[in-house]
Nucleic acid binder design. Structure first.
Lengths: 158, 158
DNA sequence: GGAACATAATTGACATGTCAATCATTTCTC
DNA sequence: GAGAAATGATTGACATGTCAATTATGTTCC
């Protein structure tokens, strides 16, 4: 087997990498900007509200919520503080574990999520789905799965 | 032609979208974390230093630099302030336009960039290039180009 | 039961990003 | 050439993200 550890990407591989990462970044920024101007929501707000709205009783333990959207707990804690100030969520003490907190979507939060959802899905269609052929959608899914797998493997090695 | 304006993504299209955007985000975060722990640099630092190191005389007008890395000027201005405090870049008055500023890489900045570059390229190979088959690299490039094109077209319509 | 350790969540400090407002200078137009 | 408009860049306010430290409670084990 060839020793790869010290090889660097070729010029072409690097070009693809830059295109790929810059484009996905531009896409993310565009969707975020849409969401903000149409609904005064950030992608973070949306992720939190989506997870809560799908949860049993519209409530989750803080750490479950963090796991479900793949955030560090500290990040979530800061974000929940901001959302709580805006009246979108509320924190309650957990009855089964006094260390824990339960996060729940307020009525106001649930309404906001409903109003946000359709325009956001439309934007995803417009910027992502409409851009790609069915084959390209499949390819995007494969690519994501492959990259995610590889990432998980590298992390597991540590 | 079918009216698409109000159609929403299918469940499958949405799954691909989430996989895709979350995976690219995880990839971005992983590379950023590497760069930070190995070299005390952020991706932003790297982008700025790369553009400057490739520029004539290792200097660029602030707005040229912004265009070359695709940033808003305000973002760049804040970032340059932080990099200047760390001694990586310097700002000088522009001789041909008194409003303008020229940004230049200090010797220290150029050294830092050299030290950072190889490990960063290795990380790109490890997390991206090594994960994908040659065909998948090609597919990633196509995908990026298609998405970028579509994005530019939508923006041009406004 | 109590010391040692693990777990849940928050906090503070700070880097990064966006937006709107500002300031200085240049360019345009008459 | 004077006033209006455009351009280059910075600033301030604030949202977001990361990291390390802290607080409080739970669990283990003797």
């Amino acid at each position: 087997m060839t020793q790869r550890r010290n090889q660097l990407p070729t010029r072409e591989e690097l070009r693809v990498w830059r295109d790929f990462i810059e484009t996905t970044e531009a896409l993310r920024a565009e969707l975020a900007s849409r969401l903000q101007s149409e609904s005064s929501m950030s992608p973070g707000d949306y992720a939190v509200m989506l997870a809560l709205s799908e949860a049993e009783g519209r409530r989750l333990r803080s750490s479950e919520l963090a796991a479900s959207i793949g955030w560090e707990r500290s990040r979530l804690s800061h974000h929940l503080g901001r959302m709580e100030r805006r009246g979108l969520v509320r924190r309650e003490n957990c009855t089964t574990d006094n260390r824990g907190a339960e996060i729940l979507l307020t009525t106001e939060g649930a309404d906001a999520f409903r109003r946000t959802s359709i325009p956001h899905l439309r934007a995803i269609r417009e910027f992502f789905v409409d851009a790609l052929s069915p084959d390209q959608i499949t390819a995007a899914g494969d690519l994501a799965a492959t990259l995610r797998n590889h990432l998980d493997q590298l992390r597991a090695q540590r």
